[in-house]
Structures are given as C-alpha cells and as structure tokens.
Simulated scan of single mutants.
Amino acid sequence: MTFTLSAWVTYTMWAIFALMIIDFVIAFSKGFWKGSFDTTFLPYLKDILFYVLPLNFLLSMVSIDPTTYTLVVLYFIGGASVVYKYIRDIIGRFKAPE
C-alpha cells in the first residue's frame, strides 16, 4: 500500500466500487429473503454512468489542465461525495420501513 497520488486515485475508485457492490448485495439479499424479485439493482447501471464515468472523464482531462491539481482535487471531491452517498444508502437500507 503506497501513498502516492496515483495510488489514492485507485483507492478512491476501489472504495466506490466496493460500496456499490455492498449496497447491491444488501438490496439483492433483502429482495431474495422477501421472496420477490425486484429490479432495484438496475439503477446501479445508471450510477456507473452518472458517477463513475464523469470521474474517469476528469482523470482523462488532467493532462491538459495547466495546474494539474485542479481536476485531481475535483476528482477527490466527487469521489468522496459518491462514497458518502453509498454509505448513506447502505445505512438507509437497514432502517425499518415506516
């Protein structure tokens, strides 16, 4: 485990995909134990398109950024917000329905 900037970029993407998988497994297992097949896992394709693809686009634009850190900072802010979103979604799945 290293602490270079490129390593932290990789760790951020790993965290996003790991939390996405955990959220999917929780949603799928709850639907499985309920006895109904619900298509609640289909929004994950949309999440990849709306959250992961723009982060990869920001990384591909770093080479033309004159400061080279502006887009990297935006990447980490976006990555932290996606991680926060999935943590909130995971916690929300364990709350009792009202």
Rank of each mutant, 00 (worst) to 15 (best):
F57D: 05
L45P: 02
F37W: 11
I16F: 02
K95A: 13
K95R: 07
F17D: 14
D89H: 14
D38V: 15
L59Q: 10
L49N: 15
V25R: 01
S63P: 03
Y86M: 14
T68V: 11
W33P: 01
I48L: 10
Y86C: 04
F37Y: 13
S81W: 10
F24G: 03
I48E: 08
L45I: 14
S36P: 00
V73D: 06
I77A: 15
L19F: 12
R88Q: 15
W33V: 13
I77S: 15
Y51I: 06
V83W: 02
F32Y: 12
F76S: 13
F24C: 05
A80L: 08
L74Q: 08
I64S: 07
M13A: 04
Y84R: 11
W33F: 09
F28S: 02
M20N: 04
I21C: 04
A18P: 02
A15P: 01
Y86H: 09
I21A: 10
T39A: 12
F28P: 01
D89M: 05
Y75N: 03
G78S: 08
F32E: 09
T4W: 06
D89Q: 14
L53Q: 07
G35W: 03
K34Q: 11
K46E: 12
K30E: 05
A15H: 00
R88P: 01
T40Q: 10
S29N: 13
L58A: 05
Y11H: 07
I87F: 11
V82E: 03
G35I: 09
W8P: 00
W14I: 10
G79I: 03
Y86G: 00
D23I: 00
P43L: 04
D47C: 07
Y75S: 03
